[in-house]
Design a protein around this nucleic acid. Structure first.
Lengths: 165, 165
DNA sequence: GCCTGTGAACATATTCACAGCA
DNA sequence: TGCTGTGAATATGTTCACAGGC
């Protein structure tokens, strides 16, 4: 179904250990538990959204954006128009509150949904606050020190990549 | 800036031809033109959005989702509530109109923003209508015949992938 | 007989290092 | 001297094929 060969799956699993029984296959529940642990999906992660414009708003309100273990617990924006506003159940705070809120709510992941021009400075600020995993929606490669992970999501790039059929 | 080595870039370019001058570098305008052609970004692409729920709506209204050469020219949904509605300047049509509209408006790319349960049947229908490039927003691997390209966009998966710091 | 786990073979991708031209 | 283009070396990823336990 996933267009992945059985050999590939076996090799991938073997990288982490031995989870099956020869001739019998895998115990699904057991394998699922092991995989969740390997992927860090057995823990709780508190997430902050920076930027509550059109996109940040959509993220905070999108019901599917709260998979097991992930909690959108903070939102930041410097636009006074949004300050104090409730977006998807979270109260919008100014950027200046970031350090304190990240620490007090134990936030480890951030989603950056600000215009490209502001992305780098927002990322710098997040890194400064101790956030080491950042999901970036701007079409920009943010520069970060070693040990910080940025994943870029760019639907426009994905669309553009469809043209070489 | 892109965290890509110069050797990598030279190798990639060499796959398509020779665009620079030794000792001098690349003529930026010329290289840009060549790359646009290689990537199919010098042409016009008409795009349809299937599903005008929360997500489809956001896509159709998002001003950044109209990069050079891409035109969102149709929207389909079977919910009678949305039929005829204007979403981001496009009139919502029923799924039954797909074959005719795809042909008449020369649509070559589709963005599928419907719930997972409906994704496969929508994809089947698009393929039937001759669409060969599909951007899928559901957390599903759609099955397609050879020659059809599906690219999956899954922000939730991206978020989940941030946990193995 | 079935299906995992894994070396070996093969394939692809990246990096190195340098000849050669401006 | 500077920078491209590219073979060669290295690294990484995938597929094959089969031993061995169930």
């Amino acid at each position: 179904m996933l267009q992945i060969t059985s050999a590939q799956i076996r090799k991938d699993l073997s990288y982490f250990g031995r989870f099956g029984k020869q001739g019998r296959g895998y115990r699904v529940r057991h394998l699922l538990t092991e995989l969740k642990q390997i992927l860090g999906l057995d823990a709780e992660w508190n997430v902050a959204v920076v930027g509550v414009g059109r996109l940040g708003n959509a993220i905070l309100n999108y019901p599917g954006f709260n998979p097991d273990g992930f909690h959108l617990v903070a939102a930041f924006d410097n636009n006074p128009r949004h300050l104090g506003e409730d977006v998807g159940g979270v109260s919008v705070e100014p950027m200046s509150a970031m350090a304190e809120t990240v620490a007090s709510r134990n936030i480890t992941i951030a989603i950056v949904a600000v215009p490209s021009v502001h992305t780098q400075s927002v990322v710098d600020q997040l890194v400064e606050c101790g956030v080491r995993a950042i999901l970036n929606y701007a079409p920009i490669t943010a520069q970060v020190p070693a040990g910080v992970w940025v994943r870029n999501i760019d639907p426009v790039l994905a669309l553009q990549s469809m043209t070489t059929i």
